[in-house]
Amino acid sequence: MDTYKLILNGKTLKGETTTEAVDAATAEKVFKHYANEHGVHGHWTYDPETKTFTSTE
Protein backbone atom coordinates (compact mmCIF):
# COMPACT_ATOMS: atom_id res chain seq x y z
CA MET A 1 0.00 0.00 0.00
CA ASP A 2 1.07 3.55 -0.70
CA THR A 3 0.21 6.86 0.92
CA TYR A 4 -1.75 9.33 -1.21
CA LYS A 5 -2.38 12.98 -0.38
CA LEU A 6 -5.39 15.21 -1.05
CA ILE A 7 -5.21 19.00 -1.11
CA LEU A 8 -8.62 20.67 -0.89
CA ASN A 9 -8.97 24.23 -2.16
CA GLY A 10 -12.71 24.62 -1.69
CA LYS A 11 -14.72 27.80 -1.26
CA THR A 12 -15.67 26.82 2.30
CA LEU A 13 -13.11 24.13 3.12
CA LYS A 14 -9.35 24.16 2.66
CA GLY A 15 -6.91 21.60 3.95
CA GLU A 16 -5.01 18.38 3.41
CA THR A 17 -5.54 14.74 4.26
CA THR A 18 -3.91 11.42 3.39
CA THR A 19 -5.02 7.85 2.86
CA GLU A 20 -3.37 4.47 2.41
CA ALA A 21 -4.49 2.72 -0.77
CA VAL A 22 -3.43 -0.07 -3.11
CA ASP A 23 -3.48 2.26 -6.14
CA ALA A 24 -4.34 5.78 -7.31
CA ALA A 25 -7.82 4.79 -8.51
CA THR A 26 -8.75 3.52 -5.05
CA ALA A 27 -7.34 6.65 -3.40
CA GLU A 28 -9.30 8.83 -5.83
CA LYS A 29 -12.57 7.12 -4.86
CA VAL A 30 -11.83 7.65 -1.16
CA PHE A 31 -10.90 11.30 -1.68
CA LYS A 32 -13.89 12.10 -3.91
CA HIS A 33 -16.22 10.59 -1.30
CA TYR A 34 -14.50 12.68 1.40
CA ALA A 35 -14.77 15.87 -0.68
CA ASN A 36 -18.44 15.25 -1.51
CA GLU A 37 -19.27 14.68 2.16
CA HIS A 38 -17.68 18.05 2.95
CA GLY A 39 -19.44 19.90 0.13
CA VAL A 40 -16.39 20.38 -2.09
CA HIS A 41 -17.17 19.89 -5.78
CA GLY A 42 -14.18 21.13 -7.73
CA HIS A 43 -11.83 20.42 -10.60
CA TRP A 44 -9.57 17.42 -9.88
CA THR A 45 -5.93 16.97 -10.82
CA TYR A 46 -3.45 14.22 -9.93
CA ASP A 47 0.35 14.30 -9.82
CA PRO A 48 1.66 10.71 -10.03
CA GLU A 49 5.21 11.72 -9.02
CA THR A 50 4.06 12.99 -5.62
CA LYS A 51 0.89 10.85 -5.40
CA THR A 52 -1.08 14.03 -4.73
CA PHE A 53 -4.66 14.81 -5.71
CA THR A 54 -5.88 18.41 -5.74
CA SER A 55 -9.49 19.56 -5.79
CA THR A 56 -10.03 23.24 -6.57
CA GLU A 57 -13.36 25.07 -6.62
Rank of each mutant, 00 (worst) to 15 (best):
M1P: 08
M1Q: 08
M1E: 08
M1V: 11
D2M: 12
D2K: 14
T3I: 13
T3C: 14
T3L: 12
T3N: 06
K5E: 04
I7A: 03
I7N: 03
L8C: 09
N9Q: 09
N9W: 12
N9D: 11
G10T: 09
G10L: 07
G10I: 05
K11L: 15
K11M: 13
T12Y: 14
T12F: 14
L13F: 15
K14C: 14
K14D: 05
K14R: 12
G15C: 15
G15Q: 13
G15V: 15
G15H: 14
E16N: 07
T17H: 14
T18H: 09
T18R: 07
T19H: 06
A21D: 01
A21W: 02
D23P: 01
D23H: 03
A24E: 07
A24F: 14
A25D: 09
A25E: 12
T26I: 06
T26D: 10
A27C: 01
A27R: 00
E28D: 03
E28M: 12
E28K: 07
E28Q: 08
K29S: 10
K29M: 12
F31C: 01
F31D: 01
K32M: 11
K32D: 03
H33C: 10
Y34F: 11
Y34L: 07
A35D: 01
A35P: 01
A35G: 02
N36P: 02
N36E: 15
N36Q: 14
E37C: 11
E37N: 09
H38S: 08
H38K: 13
H38N: 11
H38Y: 10
V40N: 04
G42P: 05
G42T: 04
G42C: 03
H43I: 15
T45W: 06
T45D: 10
T45N: 08
D47P: 00
P48G: 06
E49D: 13
E49Y: 10
E49L: 12
T50S: 10
T50E: 06
K51R: 12
K51E: 01
K51S: 03
T52V: 07
T52K: 02
T52R: 02
F53G: 00
F53Q: 00
T54N: 05
T54K: 05
T54W: 10
T54C: 08
S55Y: 10
S55I: 15
T56H: 07
T56K: 06
T56M: 07
T56F: 08
E57K: 03
